[in-house]
Structure formats: structure tokens, C-alpha cells
Nucleic acid binder design. Structure first.
Lengths: 150, 150
DNA sequence: ACAATTAGTTGTAATAATCAACTATTTGTA
DNA sequence: TACAAATAGTTGATTATTACAACTAATTGT
């Protein structure tokens, strides 16, 4: 009996999860954002310091032009604003607007609600182990990436 | 301190993992397949009975026309073949060719290798818990989906 | 002062996904 | 049996996402 590939096991879980999340958010919010757009918005708002597009490109593992267009889209929806960095005029600082913050809250509420349902019935020990493994895999995968690029 | 959304935690792990997987497969294989195409190929080969495009659409949570085009692509690369079902001529049965099987093996080898690296250092207990949680989440997410559609 | 680097922008092309409309076939039922 | 409904697959059109390359403007290093 051969073991199943990790990517497919976890991938299946993610598909099912994201599909349900997408269904709920499209039902219960007006602003139509993709999962990635919400992720970007959230990442901008959570960061300790003012972020640039380049920062976000590295964080989200995407090309800078992809991020640029995502931010175009978010700015059109008035969820973020760009402002030229005073100290380095090549850079744009990205700010989340009040409307953007409200939007994040709306999405987070839906996501936490779903999360509660999905995790219900699991022991605290299992959950701890789960997060440990997730972090371990992510760190290793990014480490492999780092080595490859350097 | 607010907890982080599950989708973003696991999503980050998946991005890092898939990015590294993509890098390795594009380096070490000639046939350029996406992760999803490999997943489809694998799903066809692993299924107990002969599968139809509709089956795969349900399994992969995609539109049937998406699957159709993925299979077009796989058939062009001579990795699968279609044949009309003798008992229900509306259906196509999808078969994996020998070349397709060799291709799956090639990808699986890369994936298992990466998997070993990523999971190295984790205890068996943590891994068991991890798989338990993954299955739990997937089952619940699909259940939510099922209820919503019925 | 000038080359190299960096951040952002734009154009373009490739890919992927979905929706709706359509054909062919099968199933259910009046 | 005949005909409506459902099913599987196909096609066309549209949309979104992504990446790559070429470009501008600003900054850094020598």
C-alpha cells in the first residue's frame, strides 16, 4: 500500500475549505474579492511597518506586476490607497482605508465562523500538533526556496 | 491577541510548498504539467472504476468544461485517452496511457522526495494528529458544501 | 559623474476558470 | 410507444490571473 502525496491530501482539504469560504463570502458580502485579494489586504493591515508593493510581492510569492494589479483593483474599490514614500520616492506605501478595514472585519468574521465549524470536535492536543506541523512544513519549504535562490 | 485565520496559515504553507514543488518538477521533468493536471492524472489512475469527465469534475470541484479542457491537454500530450462508454454512449471513459503512468511516477517521486524533506524531524504522533485534523477539516468542509447544495 | 540597482509601471501573451447555449444520448413516465 | 426531463460532453465567449520583458524614475555605490 503506497502512501498518498502530501500535496494532494492537503490540497483536497484546501479546495473544499476555500470553496465553502468563497460560497459564504459571495453570499454575505457585497464587495467581490478573491481569497488572494483578501489575503493581501489582511497582510497589509497586519504588517508592523508601512509596506511597499515589492514587500507584498515577496510575501505573497508573486510577481510585482501581479501585486500592482491587485492593488489597482483594491484601490479602485477604495479599500487601499497608495502614497509615495517621502524618504525613497521610488517606493509606494500602501495604506488600508477605513472602508478597507471594515471589509477585512467582514471577511474575517465569516472566516472565523467557518473555522469554528471546521475545527469543532478536535482535541486541543491535535490542534496544537496540527499547527506545529504546518509551521514546520512552511519553514522548511521556504528554506528550500531560499537555498535555491541564493 | 487575535488568532490568525486558518485559511491564511495553511494557505501560506501551501504556497511555499507548491512553489518549491513546481520549481523541482519544472527542473526535472520534460512534460510541463500544472499541479492540478498532475492531480487529475493521479486521480484517474487511482480510481477503482473507470472514470468519466463528470466524475472528475465532482472530485476536483471544478466545472465540467474545465475538466474537459484539462483532459484535452492531457490527451494532446498522450498521457490519457478517451473512449466512449459502451453502456452509456453519453459518457467518456478516461484511461491513462503507459506514457501517462510513467509521467505520474516521475512526478510522484519528486513529490515524495520533497515530502520526506518537509516532514523530516516531526514526531510520528504529530504527523498522525496532522492527518487526523486534515481529514476532519476536509470532511466537514465537504459536508457543509453538501448541505448547501441540497 | 556615472554605472548599477531598485520600485513601480505598462504592454503583451499565456493560462485557467466559468457561464450559457448547444448536441447526443439515456431515463422516466403518461 | 412517445415525449419530456435529465445527463454527459462539447463549444464559444468572456473574464481574471499571472508572468515576462521592456521601460521610467529614483537612489546608491564607486
Amino acid at each position: 500500500m503506497r502512501r498518498k502525496p502530501l500535496g494532494m491530501i492537503v490540497g483536497g482539504m484546501m479546495s473544499a475549505m476555500f470553496r465553502e469560504l468563497k460560497r459564504r463570502t459571495s453570499e454575505r458580502t457585497d464587495s467581490k474579492l478573491t481569497i488572494d485579494q483578501v489575503g493581501l489586504l489582511y497582510a497589509i493591515s497586519q504588517n508592523d511597518r508601512d509596506v511597499t508593493q515589492q514587500d507584498m510581492a515577496e510575501l505573497m510569492l508573486k510577481d510585482k506586476s501581479s501585486i500592482l494589479r491587485m492593488i489597482d483593483s483594491l484601490e479602485n474599490k477604495e479599500l487601499v490607497r497608495r502614497a509615495v514614500d517621502r524618504e525613497d520616492r521610488r517606493k509606494n506605501q500602501i495604506f488600508v482605508t477605513k472602508k478597507g478595514e471594515r471589509t477585512i472585519e467582514q471577511y474575517l468574521q465569516i472566516e472565523f465562523e467557518l473555522m469554528d465549524e471546521l475545527l469543532d470536535g478536535l482535541s486541543a492536543d491535535d490542534l496544537d500538533a496540527f499547527y506545529r506541523v504546518v509551521n514546520h512544513i512552511r519553514t522548511r519549504a521556504e528554506g528550500a526556496l531560499f537555498c535555491a535562490n541564493s
